[in-house]
Design a protein around this nucleic acid. Structure first.
Lengths: 214, 214
DNA sequence: GGGCTATATATCATAAAGATATATCGTCAA
DNA sequence: TTGACGATATATCTTTATGATATATAGCCC
């Protein structure tokens, strides 16, 4: 049993057709790229390992021309391993969201900083949403009777839902940041020009602990 | 300029109060843990590096009792570095979502598999949503006048919005999976008992390429 | 022929997660 | 009282993952 999930991602794509390492990289980026990625640094060593395991067979492509090309093909054992992994519960790993980390410490910098981060995020998200919708249209046309289409649609729908929710959050966040800015103008405790807090405001005594966030 | 984002996460928390490596781990997990994490394997080496950089000062705590405890304190230079990082655009790295990868290859296994993955995800998501709401309530009570509260609320609101969207997607996905199952019963091309596709159905010719997903 | 892009494999440095080893102290129950 | 346990605390290791870079060949266009 290989733990590494790269193994199963590769096996999954090799059920589509035999592929080279390069093909696999392309296939991953061009399909699941929005929620999964694989780098060459993972792919090539893993292909060797999969071959050792007997889950794929690898041999040089007979079509001369291109540079040495190794074609990898899933075996019955490999397919079985893939199925076993697919049936095992999915593990959830919370992502690292840099935007939120910067916002979390937003009190350290002018309010305009948070605003511009959220605005940039909103623009990127809108772009993604349009892209996902375009893909949905293309998929419907090109793979109308493909039995895999419904599954692909599910993952795409996840992306669309996420992007919509993110745009709505961006709008709420921008509104809130504007509200905070207005509050500053009334009571001049904060200003856009300077920082919200003095550069050095460390409590001298180490014993002072502020309550945790939760 | 340190690239590693762990550096800035640590500096951010050291603006709250001086802390040990252990404190920092606790603080991260207990506040931003839902969208950011740090491991000891990152924290301790980074604390050394931050001290070398002059961004923190580290010295043994004078309170005897506990085992050797190093208290780290942010310096003016450290705070400046933090501010610079906070102001720089946030980079976005698409997360790896194992659930979606398994669903993407859902055609390889019985429909019930996808259904149970989505059901499990829904349960986890509902739990997170409740947890986030509870945190929101506690925060409102305990940090009513804290100037950082609005920023914390923004990150929490992101989580709440994401969880709501995810629950809605789970419900749509479950409905779709049920629909697919019904279609199978009518036309018996697929069954719950066996796999959707024969165990070995590799195209013999390598030249055959199915169109990419996008 | 020179430059560009696509194809193709391989490796390295860095980043990050997760597990484990080690040690001290306080507390609570057998 | 002692011994188990949990909290505190630092440190390191292996595995996983990303991103950059090196190397090479082929086709194409000007």
């Amino acid at each position: 049993m290989i733990e590494n999930r790269t193994a199963y991602a590769l096996l999954g794509f090799l059920t589509w057709r035999p592929m080279s390492g390069y093909d696999l990289k392309q296939a991953v980026a061009g399909s699941v790229g929005n929620f999964w990625s694989e780098s060459y640094g993972q792919i090539y060593p893993m292909l060797r390992r999969l071959a050792e395991e007997g889950w794929i067979t690898s041999r040089p492509a007979e079509d001369a021309g291109r540079r040495a090309r190794h074609v990898h093909r899933i075996t019955a054992a490999g397919r079985e391993a893939l199925h076993e992994w697919l049936c095992a519960p999915a593990t959830e790993t919370p992502p690292r969201i840099e935007l939120l980390l910067k916002l979390f410490f937003g009190d350290e910098v002018p309010l305009s900083v948070g605003r511009s981060h959220v605005e940039a995020a909103r623009a990127r998200t809108v772009e993604s949403l349009y892209r996902y919708r375009a893909i949905a249209g293309k998929l419907r046309d090109s793979h109308a009777d493909d039995p895999r289409l419904p599954f692909w649609r599910l993952t795409l729908d996840y992306g669309i839902g996420s992007m919509q929710a993110r745009i709505e959050w961006c709008d709420r966040a921008l509104e809130e940041l504007r509200r905070l800015a207005e509050a500053c103008e009334d009571g001049p405790r904060r200003g856009e020009a300077g920082r919200n807090r003095p550069a050095v405001s460390q409590p001298e005594k180490e014993g002072i602990r502020c309550a945790e966030y939760d």
